[in-house]
């Protein structure tokens, strides 16, 4: 059992997402950085898809009311258990009464913006439509269908001392699988249905510009600022299905990337779509930072997905081995 000590905002329970219900108007939800969620879970011997606490506003603190194994992944936020510092992407075990503090995300060799607190056995909330993710728009899933508040208490699936071997960590995937272009986080995208309806100059600048992530960016979508993108001629589209990663360009010419809590339909022209394997890179890009878009192909997008799957398989194998060894020691 953990208790939220911070007067927090926008902190939610998330797993990898709720899939297969877009046709009913139910969005995907899920962790903005699925690799951090899966990595933290694998450190604890959990299923990759176990639910965790996604922290977006710092500092943040929880108190453990019972002993419990945990892992903190995602943004490097100077985590400490009482006064003991914890390395980034690391697992530990808290005794009853101990407080886990997360500070402001650090400006290291990689800067993230969201941290994940995973618990042994996962955060024990009901599974709704196949997922434990919080669906804020529909007010269901996660913890009571809402963001966490000070005083909320969450149970771990497998609480207790020594239940899971802890005390080791992972090389963050941003270092293991870096993708940087001219010093900026690079995001691979596929040209989308209306790409050819934009002017050649707009198409060129879409690839060459440094797109700034504005403060109007959240789990629903990222509003980007940069050169204006213009259509050759205005087009009217009926609302149609969209998924996280779709980059729409409304009338102002400034793109919006749909993120995990995006509504499942929209009618703006789509210039491109972020490949699924790179959504985590964008999910961690801080407000105020700049990103670049790299043109990709369907084959490259699948290969990138394979690369992350291989990374997770390797993490799973090594963490299981290490867990077994630590368990015997």
């Amino acid at each position: 059992m953990i208790e939220i000590l911070s007067d927090t905002a926008l902190t939610t329970v998330q797993d990898l997402g709720r899939f297969g219900f877009l046709n009913w108007g139910v969005g995907a939800s899920g962790a903005m950085d699925p690799l951090a969620l899966a990595g933290g879970n694998l450190l604890l011997g959990n299923d990759e898809n176990a639910a965790a606490v996604e922290v977006q506003v710092f500092p943040f603190a929880v108190r453990f009311h019972v002993p419990c194994g945990f892992a903190v992944t995602g943004a490097d936020c100077a985590a400490r258990l009482d006064d003991q510092p914890l390395l980034p992407w690391w697992s530990g075990e808290a005794a009853a009464g101990q407080v886990l503090h997360l500070g402001l995300p650090a400006n290291g060799s990689w800067r993230g913006s969201r941290a994940y607190l995973c618990l042994a056995g996962g955060v024990d909330v009901p599974c709704v439509l196949g997922s434990r993710s919080t669906q804020l728009r529909g007010a269901f899933g996660g913890h009571e269908g809402r963001a966490l508040r000070q005083g909320d208490r969450l149970r771990a699936g497998l609480p207790g001392a020594g239940v899971r071997p802890t005390g080791f960590g992972l090389v963050p995937p941003a270092l293991a699988m870096p993708l940087v272009s001219e010093g900026m986080v690079a995001i691979r995208v596929l040209p989308a249905a209306e790409y050819d309806r934009f002017t050649p100059a707009s198409r060129d600048v879409f690839w060459s510009a440094a797109w700034k992530i504005t403060p109007q960016s959240d789990r629903y979508g990222y509003r980007l600022a940069g050169p204006r993108l213009d259509l050759v001629a205005p087009i009217e589209l009926r609302s149609h299905g969209i998924v996280p990663g779709v980059i729409q360009v409304p009338h102002g010419g400034q793109p919006i990337v749909q993120m995990r809590d995006a509504q499942p339909s929209g009618g703006y022209p789509k210039i491109a779509t972020v490949i699924e394997a790179d959504l985590w890179r964008l999910g961690q890009a801080p407000i105020g930072s700049r990103v670049r878009f790299l043109e990709s192909t369907w084959e490259e997008a699948l290969a990138a997905l394979d690369e992350t799957a291989r990374w997770l398989a390797k993490v799973h194998e090594l963490a299981t081995l290490q867990g077994g060894r630590a368990g015997r020691a």
Partner: peptide, 30 residues
Amino acid sequence: HPLHEAPLVRVGERMQAGRTLGLLRIGALL
């Protein structure tokens, strides 16, 4: 740590039993 510039410990530093002095990287694992 791969994300950090500062070493985990320096010569002359006092360390409690169990504290991390360094890391061994084995593939993705630390």
